[in-house]
Design a binder for these strands. Structure first.
Lengths: 196, 196, 196, 196
DNA sequence: CATGAATGAGTTTTCATTCAT
DNA sequence: GATGAATGAAAACTCATTCAT
């Protein structure tokens, strides 16, 4: 039991180290030794806990996706969505997404990195597809409470996620303040209110 | 003069080869020899025409951006935007962007690759910033003809580009038909019509 | 005493595991962990019972040689060689050697492996020299009972062992039935009868 | 043309370097850098001329086998076997094999190494099988000129090769003079004369 | 005694780059 | 200008061995 914990902790330590490394180098350019150095462990242990660099990557992606899904669950659990009015609901959703995702620059960077890896790696692509599908579906389910047309609900949720991702993309390239990100997000939010 | 032309042709040949290579491997994993093989030239010449791998990359990005700006100019030149009605204008813009950009999967892949490189490379980031800034501005200028509020025009154009980019991102991960891309694009287009 | 037995049993368990491993990988490519896995023990204990990988090897070679000498002794002990006729004797010797050694493919493989190690390892070479010397001498002694010329007896026994080893070598490379091994062995046996 | 020559020369240089290395270390323990050092070239070139360590090995084995088949051809070409008497023929064959093969200690070492590799490597095993098959067949064809029974001819040639190989094996382990190698070989030769 | 986490030397391989021809 | 041979740095990975628990 204690053993398992130690193992899991070590793995997390390594994944967190990779997370840090990715803020300054691409995964491709990040060497096993870089990660080890950042984690403060011998590079050999990375091969002890993971079967190779690809395994680290895949585990890392799971870790990132799990983490942000946990955040989403936590957010949902913390409020009584059932009794929200339409605009209260939208306010809350945007507040959450804007602050935790779209305007979270370091998360956005990580995701751009993952999108790129997905371009050439089917397994990563699968993970991404699954994560976004779930996101769209859960958002769609929430929207459905405020709208009749289910197809519209789904399409709106796809559009919302696409828009958020596009904005996140911009946040990695434009220095804060350059693009009127907040304003644009607010404008978009207003349109969504109008639609629902 | 002729000399210059030959040189320029050789460079283009190499950049086109890289373009092909990027459809199956990341830039990082694409070797100079891969590009040379694809271009049908000896790998040594790549160092004659370019100062190194990074130089090829930078030139390639210019080439890609120039190419798509040329397409945009050609499109704009080919029609009399001045006399378009609002909805005609929007129809045309979406038709162009959807077909040539958002749903152009191989272009989207290239751009995801470039976005990722920009994450860690200031020069590339600059090129991207400039390209998107220009895009937003030109779109904003066009929109301005149909709307009073100039700030709104700009914000709408930012939102449009962000949305298109998000959809392009999705197109690289979701098999065609999985997400109701066309429908979502059409729905979004309708909202833009409503706004203007 | 009991302690010693347990220890000895553990060592044997490990050596038998190595024996199994060598059927599919060279000693060089067989890792300590491979052996441990095969033996069903933790790899750490291999360093407890043996001083290192080389020590395992040396012990293993002793084990193999001891084992096959034990077989020989058992064979000799089981029959009254004193009263055999010349051809009875030859029949018996060949029957034993052919079945237990020359045509024992997995033993032959092990020996090829050991011969190769002996090429570069003086200690192993010594063990091999000693084992073959003893074999030649014991065979020579048996032959001497049926022949006057002692030098001839020795030379014949050397030739016999060489021939058997050569045939064993072939058995590791030629699929059974490819070379007419049995027939050749029988023909050779006949010549030996003729000589004695 | 000249290019090809240079390439072939370089490859040979590397294979000869491996040959030298194998006199003191097994192939497994010989590193690419060892071979490069021995050949007096940068280790990178080994990957330029060969696709990897296995390719070097395979090429080397071809080189060794070709070399010794060339020796055999040269030997055969140099004498008028048609007009030899039986015992002249046997004399010559043994003289050649004894000196060039069986008692050529460094060649024997190489072959023991190759036999061992063949144990675990199907491609090498195939090469060995082919080489020995050819050897047995050519020897059998020569013997057939002096004997009626074709099956016997073949079996005798198998036995001869097996015996020679066994003796070669001994030569790698017993210091010269320890075993009465020459005498044994002479005795064996006499038996062959008797048979034919 | 047993375990398994940790170490670090060593191996093969890749590749941008240089340079003589 | 083109060619391809050569260089050397750096990467991922393996593994015997050590050692604290």
């Amino acid at each position: 039991m204690a053993r398992k914990k130690v193992q899991e902790e070590r793995r997390l330590q390594i994944l967190r180290a990779l997370d840090t490394c990715l803020q300054e180098k691409s995964f491709e350019k990040t060497s096993i030794k870089d990660i080890a150095r950042e984690a403060g462990v011998n590079h050999g242990v990375l091969h002890y806990y993971f079967s190779g660099k690809e395994d680290i990557l895949l585990s890392y992606i799971d870790y990132v996706i799990d983490d942000y899904q946990a955040q989403a669950r936590e957010w949902m659990g913390g409020r009584d969505l059932e009794h929200y009015t339409k605009s209260q609901f939208i306010d809350e959703v945007f507040a959450f997404v804007n602050n935790r995702i779209t305007l979270n620059k370091s998360l956005s960077r990580i995701f751009v990195e993952i999108w790129e890896i997905a371009l050439y790696n089917g397994e990563v692509r699968g993970k991404l597809r699954e994560a976004y599908t779930r996101w769209v579906e859960e958002l769609g389910a929430m929207i459905s409470r405020h709208i009749e047309d289910k197809t519209l609900a789904r399409n709106v949720s796809i559009a919302m996620v696409a828009f958020w991702e596009g904005m996140a993309l911009f946040s990695t390239v434009f220095p804060p303040g350059t693009l009127a990100m907040e304003e644009v997000l607010k404008g978009f939010q207003q349109r969504i209110v109008d639609i629902l």
